[in-house]
Design a protein around this nucleic acid. Structure first.
Lengths: 144, 144
DNA sequence: GCGCACTAGATGCACACGCAACGTTCTAAG
DNA sequence: CTTAGAACGTTGCGTGTGCATCTAGTGCGC
């Protein structure tokens, strides 16, 4: 037996916890702002980036999507006017996804919901100290 | 500011860790046994259940799928002969998903790959002590 | 300078999944 | 006993996603 039943249970708990938090988070965002989770994450990443812009490839990695997946997602966000595409001067192959003012505004509306949900469903139940433990454990898994 | 940037980072790490482990796990299973992750989980849950059978509804909850999602998944597994459907005596609405001998065999082939991958990508990097910490944290999140 | 391998992003295609709706069956209230 | 409501599993439909492929563009080796 490679794994004890308790070890297996821990892995199952991890899956369940992540899905549970993400599901509730997305439900809150959809209800209050009609915004799916990946959409929010794209907006948030762009807002943090210098010039509110990111190369498609980099953005895809940050939000855990394939390049093609991100292409479609940006298509939708662009259609809604939250994001625009701009050419990259230094590399004619490259494109920037750029956060528009409307996108920024939409993000700022949704941010309290997003961050509140993470507090409520994740950080809150843990408490400050355990969040640090959690961070340490995740770092051990090689996650940046 | 509801969340510090570090708190936000911890949530992002959690997402990344879960996706990363699941992706590698599924890649190993597909490569070695041509078995997707949800398929394996259904087989494993059935093997653990008394009579190697579980009601569709219960199974759906266990593997974190909607009822309709499980219906299709069982369709595929039944087509491959790994699972069969049997009526429920006590409730004519209900169906059991039942693990066939072929399914049991397939599961036993794949189990070392599955459990080895969890060891390699999750439990191993943590170490015995931190796995206990992890279990404690997950329990605090209300996950059973 | 010229090819050749590589990267970036988009697209065709297939597919797994959730939601809403439906028929069937159980259950509880009257 | 009857009936309204809920639960179980399935199906039609829409959609988000990854893989393979394609085109355009880059840059390194020779």
């Amino acid at each position: 037996m490679l794994l004890t039943s308790e070890e297996l249970a821990v892995w199952r708990m991890l899956q369940r916890a992540q899905v549970r938090i993400a599901t509730r988070l997305e439900a809150d965002l959809l209800r209050a702002h009609d915004l799916a989770l990946p959409c929010y994450e794209v907006l948030a990443r762009l807002a943090e980036a210098p010039g509110r812009r990111l190369r498609m490839n980099d953005l895809a990695h940050q939000v855990l999507l394939s390049r093609s997946g991100l292409t479609r997602l940006i298509d939708r966000l662009q259609r809604d006017g939250l994001v625009s595409r701009e050419a990259c001067e230094s590399d004619a192959r490259g494109l920037f996804a750029v956060l528009t003012d409307a996108g920024q505004a939409r993000l700022e509306q949704a941010r309290p919901t997003y961050q509140g949900a993470i507090r409520e469903h994740f950080l809150g139940p843990l408490g400050e100290e355990d969040v640090q433990s959690c961070r340490r454990l995740l770092a051990k898994l090689g996650v940046v």
